[in-house]
């Protein structure tokens, strides 16, 4: 059992620049910001070191931070220019019973990150969902397709804050 602070120090030592900062959220659960390019390495380290042994990936949540410049169009709809998308990894060790939260922040223009599905099979579907809903592209993912939306959905990524429903989908009217 290790506290997130201890793990943060260890990671900082090991990866240096790739570990950006730690942030406390309301309930003092620490979240460690990781450079996007290093997430695979950091995950591998956390899984393979017996000291940490984060064998269980609880959840990958993707979210749109909605922090870009809001551009309002004439019809009242808006888009965000710039800004970031985030991926939050909740990890847990079933042997040591400690938990850790990692965050990766990606630019909205080019949201690409290395897939961790080789480490945790569970990440396969979670990453597909993140791709489907927010539009984050996972490099080296075995089967990156849409999962909940139709395979031929081309109107964007629904969970982005500036998502707009299309008028028609395959000839069917979408908004009721």
């Amino acid at each position: 059992m290790k506290t997130p602070e201890v793990i943060f120090e260890a990671l900082k030592q090991h990866f240096g620049e790739a570990i950006l900062a730690q942030q406390a959220n309301v309930l003092n659960e620490f979240m460690i910001d990781v450079e996007p390019s290093a997430i695979k390495k950091v995950s591998f380290f956390l899984v393979s070191e017996p000291e940490y042994n984060f064998d269980n990936l609880i959840l990958i949540s993707a979210l749109d931070d909605a922090n870009g410049k809001k551009v309002i169009a004439e019809d009242g709809s808006f888009i965000f220019e710039g800004g970031t998308l985030s991926l939050i990894y909740h990890l847990e060790s079933t042997t040591h019973k400690h938990r850790l939260v990692l965050r990766v922040t990606l630019p909205k223009e080019k949201p690409e990150v290395e897939s961790v599905s080789q480490l945790w099979q569970h990440a396969d579907w979670e990453e597909r969902e993140a791709y489907d809903m927010i539009g984050i592209v996972f490099l080296n993912h075995p089967d990156l397709r849409r999962i909940l939306m139709p395979y031929d959905w081309d109107a964007g990524y629904p969970l982005r804050k500036d998502y707009k429903n299309p008028e028609f989908y395959q000839g069917m009217k979408v908004p009721y």
């Binding site: 959220n25 309301v26 309930l27 659960e29 979240m31 609880i58 959840l59 939050i88 909740h90």
Partner: peptide, 18 residues
């Protein structure tokens, strides 16, 4: 402002809300 992950033992498995 903040974020939280809580989980309960749902009949099907670990149900978590982030």
């Amino acid at each position: 402002e903040g974020q939280i992950y809580t989980r309960v033992e749902n009949p099907k498995g670990e149900l978590g809300y982030f």
